[in-house]
Amino acid sequence: MKNIQVIDGADNSVYDIFQATDEEFSLIFPDGQDVAFIDEVWDRGRAEELGRAFKQIWTRRIPKKDAMGIHGLLFYQLDSKMKYYPTRRDEEAINPDGSLLRQHPL
Rank of each mutant, 00 (worst) to 15 (best):
E91N: 12
L106I: 10
Y15Q: 15
L50D: 04
F54W: 15
D22L: 02
M82D: 05
M68W: 03
E48D: 15
D43T: 07
P86Y: 07
D11W: 12
S26P: 05
S99N: 10
S99M: 03
L78N: 09
A47S: 15
R88E: 08
G51W: 01
D43Q: 14
G45E: 00
Y76N: 06
F75I: 09
D97V: 05
A53E: 00
R60V: 02
N3G: 00
D79Y: 01
D97A: 12
L27K: 00
E40P: 01
F37C: 05
R52M: 00
S99F: 04
S80R: 10
P105S: 08
L74H: 03
P96G: 06
D8I: 08
L74Y: 04
G98E: 05
W42A: 00
V14E: 14
Y84I: 07
I70G: 08
A36F: 03
G32T: 07
D43R: 12
L100F: 13
P86L: 03
I7V: 15
K2L: 12
T87G: 06
V14L: 12
Y76H: 14
A20H: 06
Y85C: 01
D8N: 15
D34A: 02
I70C: 11
P105C: 11
Q19R: 14
I4A: 04
R44M: 03
P86R: 12
R44D: 02
D43W: 01
R46H: 00
L101F: 11
I62C: 07
K65A: 15
L74N: 02
T59D: 05
M1P: 09
I17E: 06
R61D: 08
S80A: 12
A10D: 13
G72T: 04
K55Q: 14
R89C: 09
Q77Y: 08
Q19Y: 04
V6G: 07
P96R: 04
R44Y: 04
E24N: 00
A67Q: 03
K2D: 03
H104N: 15
D22W: 05
M1L: 10
I17K: 06
D79E: 06
I57R: 04
G9K: 11
E92L: 13
R52N: 02
M68K: 14
R89P: 07
V41C: 06
D22M: 01
K55F: 02
I28C: 01
P86A: 03
M82A: 12
I94Y: 02
D39Y: 01
Y15A: 13
A93W: 11
P63L: 08
Q33W: 05
N3Q: 03
Q33I: 05
L106G: 10
I62N: 08
G69T: 03
N12T: 11
A47Q: 02
D22F: 06
K65C: 06
A47G: 07
Q5R: 14
R88C: 07
Q5N: 02
Q19A: 13
S80M: 10
F29L: 04
T21C: 03
A47T: 01
F54L: 10
K81F: 14
F75H: 08
G51P: 00
V41S: 06
Q19W: 06
G69W: 07
L106H: 11
L78M: 14
F37A: 08
L100D: 12
A10W: 09
L78H: 08
R60N: 10
Q5K: 14
